[in-house]
Computed example of a mutant assay.
Amino acid sequence: MTHINTIPDEPKPLVRFARMLWADKFALVAVLFLLVILIMAVIGPAWLDAAAQKQNLRGRNAPPFEWDRGWLWVFGADALGRPLLARIIVATQNTMMVAAGAVLFSAIMGTVLGLIAGYAGKRTSQVILRLADVIMSFPSLLIAVVVLYILGPSVSNLIIVLSITRIPVYLRTTRAEVLEIRERMFVQAAKVMGASSRRIIFRHILPVVLPTLMTIATLDFAFVMLAESSLSFLGIGIQPPDITWGLMIAQGKQYLTNAWWLSFWPGLAIILTTLSLNLLSNWMRIALDPTQRWRLEMRQTKKGAEA
């Protein structure tokens, strides 16, 4: 009887990444927490906007964990008697919208300019790099303060300002990657086959650069969220009646001595979200790199063998 050696089928990419995520419990918890944040951002305002805006001066600065008031008051109430939990959930949408919009816009613009600077001629590359140098020559928060003071604080202005200050991060990273990738054999082969520059850039080079950019975007999301919170804390970010986590911290700073919870809970939300994004970024850096992916796969295989 002849035995046929069969090679086990390669798992689908989604299943493979799910297994690697299961192997890193910290990243798994971070993803679950970020999913909760995403759900809050999507349904929060429609669900709790009325409760977050309703004032009750008899319950102003109510302390947390008074369960007789109801679950919405588990984090206490602000200076106007509005439940903090409801306001944190509603504020999630504005906070995430500003961060996501700024990261998306800066990533697209920076990546496109970086691809052009890395693949085009020296003169075009130098012009684009000087543009990045001009942006980087000023502190990002200083640019945001000046522009928002002139144009006025709003969600759209905040997204535009924060995205412009982050473009050089993606531009320089993409250009450095392209300068190395364009010398590889598969790119040279595409040139010999007569592929156009556009096809080479977007079909052959961009997929190789994309994992690195995704990791940077995850970290940058946390940075932009902190920048938005800082601007709201200074009073030039989102303005009432709109709310963000940073604005809630700013509104509670004058009550720190006798009502610490007004700033503590939104600050904790920022810390946990930033920490989760950093853990996810660290996992993505390994999972998307073929030379390091074996670490997670080996860990999952070891756990399966022990079970």
Rank of each mutant, 00 (worst) to 15 (best):
M40S: 10
A287P: 08
R285N: 10
T111Q: 02
Q251D: 14
L210V: 12
W71A: 12
L279P: 01
K122I: 15
R123Q: 08
K122Q: 13
P290H: 07
V155M: 08
Q292K: 14
V178A: 01
M214H: 03
V98H: 03
D220L: 03
Q188D: 13
F138L: 13
V42H: 05
I135L: 12
F65Y: 10
L262I: 11
L35I: 12
L28G: 07
M20H: 08
A50L: 14
V155G: 00
D9P: 10
V29W: 12
E183Q: 14
I88G: 04
L179G: 07
A259Q: 06
G304M: 14
T273D: 01
L21K: 06
I150M: 12
G59N: 15
G194D: 04
F264Y: 10
I159M: 05
I216A: 02
K54T: 14
R299Q: 15
R198H: 09
S125P: 06
R293H: 04
M284E: 00
N56I: 04
Q55A: 14
N56E: 11
P168F: 06
R293K: 12
F65T: 05
L38M: 12
A307S: 15
R87C: 00
V145M: 12
S196N: 03
Q126Y: 07
F186I: 04
L219E: 02
P63H: 09
W22S: 15
L219H: 07
S281H: 04
D78Q: 06
V209M: 02
V42M: 04
R123N: 06
E297G: 14
P266C: 01
A91L: 02
E177Y: 09
V103C: 07
K303N: 08
T212I: 08
E10K: 15
T95K: 01
F221E: 00
W283G: 01
T6A: 15
N258Q: 11
G118S: 04
W260M: 06
L21F: 05
E183W: 10
I39F: 06
I249Q: 00
I150R: 14
E297T: 11
P241I: 07
A23C: 10
P240V: 02
E180Y: 06
L14R: 13
L275T: 13
A117P: 03
L129H: 05
A144V: 00
F221R: 07
W260D: 09
Q53E: 06
S163R: 08
N278S: 11
R69T: 10
W22V: 13
G121S: 05
V145C: 02
S276T: 06
G235P: 01
I249E: 00
S163V: 11
T2F: 13
V178D: 03
L272H: 03
G304N: 14
P139K: 12
L131C: 11
K122G: 03
Q93T: 08
